[in-house]
Amino acid sequence: MKDKYRLKDWQELAIGGVVPDGGNSVDYETGTWRTSRPIWNAENCINCLNCWVFCPEDAFILKDGTTKKGTPRKEIERINYYHCKGCGLCAKECPVNKKGKKTAIDYVKEEH
């Protein structure tokens, strides 16, 4: 068993129930909750970052990029399926999807 899943003895715990390393929830997998999955289509994406801001799971991973004019900007790199719970908010709120001609995020049933 991986050490991070080993339950600790009381002597090993920080005082007062404290979690000394806030943000460590990234180690916790919530992707197993998914029954549907968003699939990001880079070619149709306009990089508006709506999916990034609305994603409750912080599952849209960004990378450094530039606009056509060369201005530095953040761009969608991929979806972190370790955390994505498959709620579908990203696909629902995607302005490309809303226009109805193309999809920048597809939302499909998970195949198990």
């Binding site: 009381w10 715990l13 129930g17 979690v19 000394p20 943000g23």
Partner: peptide
Amino acid sequence: NPSTWGALDLQDYYIEH
């Protein structure tokens, strides 16, 4: 060093605390 105070313990940790 951001720490979290007042987390929720389930059955797996409450008695150790």
